[in-house]
């Protein structure tokens, strides 16, 4: 439990326990809008199992990453609303 993972969500520092998924870290950072739909609507996770693609974010510069299936790693840079 002592171990913590630090990452950044839209530039904001977030500290999580190991095993936390990126989607959860984004919620902890207070972001509800994970991506903007093609017509500009705000969207967040739906299925939680990597199939609906609503939780796509940019992780370490790589776009279209499923935040619900990706574990937080130290130093990760996460960008939402791309």
């Amino acid at each position: 439990m002592a171990e913590r993972v630090q990452l950044r969500v839209n530039g904001k520092s977030v500290e999580v326990t190991p095993g936390t998924v990126v989607a959860a870290a984004i919620a902890m950072a207070g972001e509800s809008k994970f991506r903007r739909s093609v017509s500009g609507m705000p969207r967040g996770p739906l299925c939680g199992m990597g199939l609906c693609m609503e939780c796509r974010v940019t992780i370490n510069g790589l776009s279209q990453c499923r935040s619900c299936q990706t574990l937080c790693e130290p130093g990760m840079e996460v960008l939402t609303d791309d």
């Binding site: 936390t20 959860a24 609507m41 299925c47």
Partner: peptide, 30 residues
Amino acid sequence: RELFLPFPGWTLPGVMGPGGLQALVKGGWP
């Protein structure tokens, strides 16, 4: 996977599958 049916507002952030929410909570969702 869960079956999702469209209704007005179903695309708003915070509307999720029950299984999806449970999985996210297990993954640390506050």
